[in-house]
């Protein structure tokens, strides 16, 4: 079943590189040095956290981790700051993935921890909802189609004597 989720949620390996950043060689080397010296990221259980998308227009997306292990004691930390100074913690229970929904516009950072020790890489997902103008245009288009449909049926019924 783990495999089923993995198939279903198509991965984008975000790592700790933001979607907007280009991975230049210098940039990569810098991160490698940083990772090598950051022992909290390379903890005993080194999990690879990834997201189904790096840019969400609906405020929902799926987070997965590899290898798939029992996450009973894991916690997902979420923060709007890269340094996780104000994290929101979500116990993962026995899930093998987690679907995050209902987020408003912003950049969100995620990582896994256990016993207050970080055990995965950090990823970021940007939430940027559709504009209200676009939403309103589809809403009113739908409303106009609905009204046209009702009127067409009512007129048709009257004409055919039903």
């Amino acid at each position: 079943m783990h495999g089923a989720y993995a198939q279903q949620t198509g991965r984008v390996e975000g790592g700790i590189i933001r979607s907007s950043q280009r991975a230049t060689p210098l940039f990569c080397v810098s991160w490698l040095i940083l990772l090598a010296t950051n022992t909290s990221v390379w903890a005993a259980e080194n999990l690879s956290l990834s997201a189904s998308t790096q840019l969400s227009n609906e405020g929902y997306f799926v987070l997965n981790w590899q290898p798939e292990v029992d996450a009973a004691s894991f916690t997902l930390e979420q923060s709007s700051r890269e340094d996780f100074s104000t994290p929101v913690s979500r116990p993962l229970g026995a899930a093998s993935a987690i679907t995050i929904t209902g987020l408003s516009d912003g950049v969100y950072y995620f990582r896994l921890s256990r016993d207050e020790q970080v055990i995965s890489n950090t990823i970021s997902v940007t939430v940027e909802h559709h504009s209200l103008e676009r939403a309103a245009s589809f809403f009113f288009l739908g409303l106009a189609l609905f009204v046209t449909l009702i009127l067409s049926i009512l007129k048709g019924n009257r004409q055919t004597g039903i």
């Binding site: 987020l103 408003s104 209200l132 589809f138 809403f139």
Partner: peptide, 26 residues
């Protein structure tokens, strides 16, 4: 909890949800 953790689920101006209304009807 929804207001703190998932604010868009209660937001009546949630753009994707507004688009969904008549889409689902049709």
């Amino acid at each position: 909890d929804l207001r703190n953790e998932r604010p868009m689920l209660l937001d009546l101006l949630f753009p994707a949800a507004i688009m969904f209304l008549f889409n689902n009807l049709l």
